[in-house]
Nucleic acid binder design. Structure first.
Lengths: 138, 138
DNA sequence: TACTTTACTTGCTTTTTGCAAGTAATTATC
DNA sequence: GATAATTACTTGCAAAAAGCAAGTAAAGTA
């Protein structure tokens, strides 16, 4: 059990106690927007997370109830990671990170996704939350 | 000039290249929701940031154009930090961190602020952005 | 002139990250 | 049925970042 220390009772602080690093939201991004669900898939992302850091972050996210780890349906040697409701609730945060980054940094994002997020953020958030929820029920 | 390396062209990743740590959003929170603007004020927050880390983060945020550093109006020995437009644009991210933390962690947040954010997030975001913008024009 | 305020800087220890290699249980192939 | 490949890690070590205590320097106050 990975236990995190809570630095204060401020909700921004408690959120950052869990998500305050350069990698955690990239794992969640991969689950929400790329449909990834295995250790091997997370390793393939462009940012090249180290294997020990990935293992550590997955353990933290599992212990914090943000995702679940189960043996894959097709292979016993594989694990499937799925978002819990608590994990699905991070979608609005990730969407705001997408919008800020795409507005203020040189990025390369699918124009249709960006248009979707900019035109009707609320609907887009609900859509990706629904997709993530459906995956967790497979 | 603090220069950051961009790990990929993904907007989530570029946002995290700047904000991906446990302290940066706490500084921005203090500016947006507590009206803080000086080094000494940031040091007083409950989470107790180390002085060298605070100095480093302020330098990064300044070099990234998220805040400006000017000599204070009243004292030449004091600096005033203010959000730029790019900084004001982080308010929606911080608001989502507040909402997630207050929903999923044991926190202690003013109930009227929480009600304000939950009832009409868009209006609340605009209100705090406007307040931050007005401060930057003083 | 001495003391305080304000904003750091420095030095040192601890923790986290990054990188390369190794391991162990399945699963696929010959 | 032995051999190789997949999949998900673990381990060891160097480098970077964070944490802590103390020191510095310019400006303001008594």
């Amino acid at each position: 059990m990975k236990e995190l220390k809570q630095r204060s009772a401020c909700p921004v602080s408690t959120s950052l106690d869990i998500f305050g690093d350069k990698w955690t939201f990239l794992i969640l991004r991969d689950m929400v927007f790329a449909g990834k669900s295995t250790y091997g898939e997370f390793l393939l992302s462009a940012e090249k997370i180290a294997t020990n850091v990935l293992a550590d972050r997955l353990a933290v996210l599992e212990s914090q109830g943000i995702l679940t780890k189960t043996v894959a349906a097709d292979k016993k040697s594989k694990f499937t990671y799925r978002l819990t409701g608590k994990g699905v609730d991070t979608v609005p945060i990730i969407v705001e990170l997408v919008l800020w980054g795409s507005r203020h940094c040189p990025t390369d994002i699918a124009t249709d996704l960006l248009a979707e997020l900019r035109t009707d953020k609320g609907t887009a958030v609900e859509k990706y939350q629904k997709l993530a929820r459906e995956k967790s029920l497979i």
